[in-house]
Write a protein that binds this DNA or RNA. Structure first.
Lengths: 207, 207
DNA sequence: ACCCTTCTTGACAACTCAGTACAGAACCAT
DNA sequence: ATGGTTCTGTACTGAGTTGTCAAGAAGGGT
């Protein structure tokens, strides 16, 4: 028996995420968020507890989205696991889109993983942001490791290789592409890096 | 026939770099730079043209330092090139120190490549910073590619591999470690990533 | 010893920012 | 319809920001 909120929190957090990804945390003012979301300052503070609260909730939403995008792309039967890994790599080096089935972003720097950008910018002085960012990393890394195990079971990757180590390495390459992309390199270059990484995956010995 | 400046510009830019690496560009105020360097605002504006000028000149100094650190570590005769590459990888994943022969930094996030941090934070809206950052990347990448060629000449790396592609990939891993380090992972984990990447380098076929 | 040039310092004005408070609007239940 | 509760928008405050300016200090050449 009260007035319902007239906005969709997910939509607001989405717009805020876009703003943070474009301008960084310290480069975004509350007025910027207000303009990007259409909400007034009062509503922002009441619903999300200000700028920092918006960031935390936007990152939580980002984390949740990772379970639907990358994880679903990697999960599946053992046969085809290597191909799924390949397809994922080729897509991931071009950035993390704001929504599924949307081209990542106009410029590559804004397409960089939201969690990675925030961790690098303010993670050192904001443990909560650092932890949230690492959660985002872990959930994808775990999915990659599981996909590697599936490929191993299918005989496509050397069974002696440590799947967790490989997953760390592949994810490090993907995050590194966020940086290389921020340098202004072309998408083709990032594709080439992804292909190089994939080509070096340890194949089982022929006998 | 005039008063000489009482500070060492290199020392000032060094202190400013430390501040930028710790707090980011937008997270650093002119007062912060003033406190970190000991210079008053007036001197900062007269000598470096304000905050943005300090950044550009600090990045130029950083670029110059890359020619003395990583490049010298990688250059040398063909025999031992692979070992140099190995040693460089193991060191590079732990960050770029402020000065040669100094432990990279107390916390890993502040040890991340200065150019990479700035490119990710403001490179998209600041072409000059993006270009400078990419120059830093290119000089190291070129040195790595040359070292790969030396290792190929020495028969330690598959001669069919494209040394430039390998250099891109290795540098991407190193930059990716800046991100993984910002997530809070231990130095041991970064070492492990470096070793995994090194182990996957294509060796020449035994015959 | 003097003077001129440059550096240095601190203060200043204009502006932006984060966060708060208050008044008005909207909605649901009765 | 009406009332009570919550949401919405805006104005406000105090702190922090940038860039500039002028007055004083310091050194080198004559």
């Amino acid at each position: 028996m009260a007035r319902p909120r007239s906005f969709d929190p997910d939509h607001v957090l989405h717009a805020a995420e876009r703003q943070f990804r474009t301008s960084g945390y310290n480069g975004t003012s509350v007025d910027d968020i207000s303009a990007a979301t259409g909400l007034g300052r009062g509503s922002l503070y009441a619903a999300f507890d200000g700028k920092h609260g918006v960031l935390l909730q936007a990152m939580a939403g980002y984390f949740a989205r990772l379970g639907q995008g990358p994880r679903n792309m990697l999960a599946g039967p053992d046969e085809g696991a290597l191909e799924r890994l390949h397809a994922y790599l080729l897509r991931a080096v071009h950035g993390v889109p704001l929504a599924a089935d949307v081209p990542p972003a106009p410029d590559r720097a804004a397409a960089a993983c939201f969690a990675a950008k925030m961790a690098l910018e303010i993670g050192a002085s904001d443990p909560e942001v650092q932890r949230l960012a690492n959660d985002c990393f872990s959930v994808v890394r775990t999915a990659v490791a599981e996909c590697v195990r599936a490929a191993q079971r299918n005989g496509d990757i050397d069974p002696d290789a440590d799947p967790d180590d490989l997953a760390y390495l592949l994810l490090t390459v993907i995050r590194g592409c966020d940086v290389v992309g921020a340098y202004g390199h072309s998408p083709d270059r990032l594709t080439s890096i992804a292909e190089s990484a994939f080509a070096l995956l340890p194949r089982p010995r022929h006998h």
